[in-house]
Design a protein around this nucleic acid. Sequence first.
DNA 1: TTTTGGTCGACTGCCTACAGCATACCGTTT
DNA 2: AAACGGTATGCTGTAGGCAGTCGACCAAAA
Lengths: 245, 245
Amino acid sequence: MLLSDQAGQTAAPKIPRPATLRESVIEAIQELIVSGQLKPGQHLVESELAELLGVSRQPVREALQQLSGEGWVDLHPGQGAFVHVPTVEEADQLLAVRALLETESARLAAKHAGEDGVRRLRDLCARGIAAVQSDDVDGAVATNSELHALVTALSGNKVLAELAAQVARRVRWYHTPVARQRGMASWDEHTSLIDAIEAGDERRAAKIMREHTEHTRASYMEQRENEPAEPAPAPVRRRRPRRLG
Amino acid sequence: MLLSDQAGQTAAPKIPRPATLRESVIEAIQELIVSGQLKPGQHLVESELAELLGVSRQPVREALQQLSGEGWVDLHPGQGAFVHVPTVEEADQLLAVRALLETESARLAAKHAGEDGVRRLRDLCARGIAAVQSDDVDGAVATNSELHALVTALSGNKVLAELAAQVARRVRWYHTPVARQRGMASWDEHTSLIDAIEAGDERRAAKIMREHTEHTRASYMEQRENEPAEPAPAPVRRRRPRRLG
DNA sequence: TTTTGGTCGACTGCCTACAGCATACCGTTT
DNA sequence: AAACGGTATGCTGTAGGCAGTCGACCAAAA
């Protein structure tokens, strides 16, 4: 039997490629941003990040450019990279777009998903519920992303899935802190969503997904109301001041 | 009067920044791709592009990475960049996503657009019709893009507009050749779309936009039917063969 | 003939180095 | 006191260079 005969049948082994430095740097910087070590508006000096991460400037530059494309940092030509300052308005718009993309994904998933897809959905849902019950917030958030990603994948539209994934990554930045308060309710909605997909009921799947994303959005806006404690009105320091001499 | 007083009142001067080399290279490569000088599946060798464009490898590298993020080229780690091979299936999916995004944009535009916005729409529409009547295909396509971009901008959702723009750029790659056959009909639809937006009729605006984009899609698929003359089933040459020696 | 091992060439990924620009600082002028 | 011009410096944008790696090709073995 030729090896190519079984290609695509089972999940590819996906040997853990020693990913390029650039990709590692991207993930590292994202982590620094979501964890708050890099604050919104902060000037990201290439050489400093390079030293911090133990690499040279080149991979850092490339990472910053990619991150700029995904909305994590803003690139000012000739001036450098700055951590994107997320506004409430933008979060609202982002969540609206996510709602749009995921609603359509759910509709298409209900149309195209087969038994196998539904089984994987149920599996993920169970994992998510387990995570919530054991107070594993990070795990719950991760599983939530996986589930939404799977729904978009089941839509059968790869372009749509890719776009939704991109938007979802950005949403996650805002989303993580509110995940705790949504808690279990979110997973009940997931369950009924999967029911609708299994039944092939496009309208119901779309409706549930729209309401689901709207709930998340409302939850976010509500949390924002409660803590309008913007630490600082963004003292966007564009350049490091010279050391006094 | 301080200079800052008039900031934002008139359109910013937008001094024609001698844009970074990277951006120039991006546009140059996009042009090479849409014009067909770089064929789908072709291996893009950094040093060759660098010499061709008269710059060093670095800006080329960065340009290729950004283009990969937008779906123009595929990046295979350790192997290089290849011009993306567009499939019919993908074009269909892309057009479907565009329909989704633009339909929502139209709906929101009807909700939020003011007099000024409508005036600018009518202006663009007139320019487009003039272009068609004088057989200026390139001008018509460009104006078409501008008009759609303005509709998304009038939606008031910047994230949505940005995403729609990204999708539209990719669509344009496929779209240009079919523009001729759509011709005038397209602009009649634009006119009724603007009427609906002016009237603030969300449902009608959305409906017209959906039908409009569906027409474009149907037109594309039809053209594809007539010329399934895929020159070659993508002899995806992954590496340049060694010079015989 | 098909498979296996080895060599060569080419290209990518990364690092280092340099030139130009933009900002901050500071003395001078109005 | 405020505005202006000169100067120093940190940082970006770009170039060039080196090592590692992947594929093509070829020869030998099964």
